[in-house]
């Protein structure tokens, strides 16, 4: 029997659904709390498989915790979905942007600075309004629309005072003229599993479901399919949530999530996303 390890640090609805689907498909499920593990460099590949499973689904919310546990497991020869390279890229917006740009996948223009002074310089270049984002994190947290220089100076100063090296990386993106919605597409390998619009709630420009955004079925056009699958492939493929915007120049990819949440998409689309993910994992295990 195949043992699927699911590594988590906060058990969400998604991890429970994945466990149920895997169980229903006859897999042995081993849920591992990453907060409690102690990894030993002396372990053999067999030792590691015994503790985690034959194939591992990485579902940690903490970017660095997930990244480093994946690095360990891959070093012991285990197949981890998603891979460390994919996680490294997708968990960092700067690295994602660079990969998309290099592969000519349409993405918003973005400037990067590493001091408050540099950030103000970036804003003078890109103009107002602009969007300031942290390089790590999700759910719209600390994503700020900067309407003018006065607001920008205040926000940049506040950000620069927050401790931690990541807060000294200023990721400043053009404000794309788009409808008050974006598109979340869930991809498994080269297959689109589900796609939804995320409508911003009244008085809010951010579309994240966690801050009130509402889901609605999105018909996958040939353009959306092409751009989304190219974006997924560019970051290394796997199980991904690709976020797109509809600009006047076409679809733009602005974020790719590698431990994608899908409760909202599942309820809107009526697709058994957890089961689709398990199918993808089983296909990967046969490779």
């Amino acid at each position: 029997m195949i043992c699927l390890g699911i590594i988590y640090d906060r058990l969400r609805w998604e991890e429970k659904e994945l466990s149920k689907s895997a169980d229903a498909r006859g897999l042995d499920v081993n849920r591992v709390d990453a907060k409690t593990i102690s990894l030993d460099s002396d372990w053999s590949s067999t030792d590691t498989q015994d503790k985690f499973g034959n194939i591992v689904l990485q579902r940690c919310i903490s970017y660095f915790r997930g990244l480093h546990t994946t690095a360990f497991l891959e070093s012991k020869g285990l197949k981890v979905i998603n891979s460390m390279d994919v996680a490294l890229t997708c968990g960092n917006k700067l690295l994602t942007t660079l990969k998309l740009e290099k592969a000519n996948v349409p993405t918003p223009r973005t400037l990067f600075s590493f001091t408050a002074e540099g950030a103000i310089e970036s804003l003078q270049t890109i103009g107002y309004p602009a969007v300031l984002k942290p390089v790590t994190g999700s759910w719209g947290r600390m994503v700020v629309k900067l309407n003018d220089k006065e607001t920008a100076q205040a926000m940049i100063e506040m950000r620069s005072k927050i401790e931690g090296p990541l807060n000294q990386i200023f990721y400043i993106q053009e404000m794309v003229d788009r409808p008050p919605r974006d598109i979340r597409t869930i991809v498994a390998g080269d297959k689109i599993v589900a796609s939804i619009y995320r409508h911003a709630s009244p008085g809010e420009w951010r579309t994240n479901v966690s801050i009130g955004g509402k889901g609605d079925i999105c018909k996958v056009t040939s353009e959306l399919e092409d751009v989304v699958l190219r974006a997924a492939d560019t970051v290394g493929g796997g199980l991904l949530g690709v976020d797109a915007m509809e600009s006047e120049n076409g679809i733009l990819i602005h974020e790719i999530n590698n431990t994608v949440e899908f409760k909202g998409a599942a309820s809107v689309c009526g697709v058994d996303i957890a089961n689709e993910i398990i199918s993808y994992i089983l296909a990967q295990n046969r490779r």
């Binding site: 640090d9 906060r10 907060k35 919310i61 903490s62 970017y63 660095f64 915790r65 968990g91 942290p134 790590t136 994190g137 999700s138 759910w139 947290r141 931690g164 990541l166 807060n167 949530g241 999530n257 590698n258 431990t259 994608v260 949440e261």
Partner: peptide, 11 residues
């Protein structure tokens, strides 16, 4: 008590 939201938390 659950962990508080970390700077690197996301999906």
């Amino acid at each position: 008590p659950a962990e508080t939201v970390g700077e690197d938390w996301g999906e």
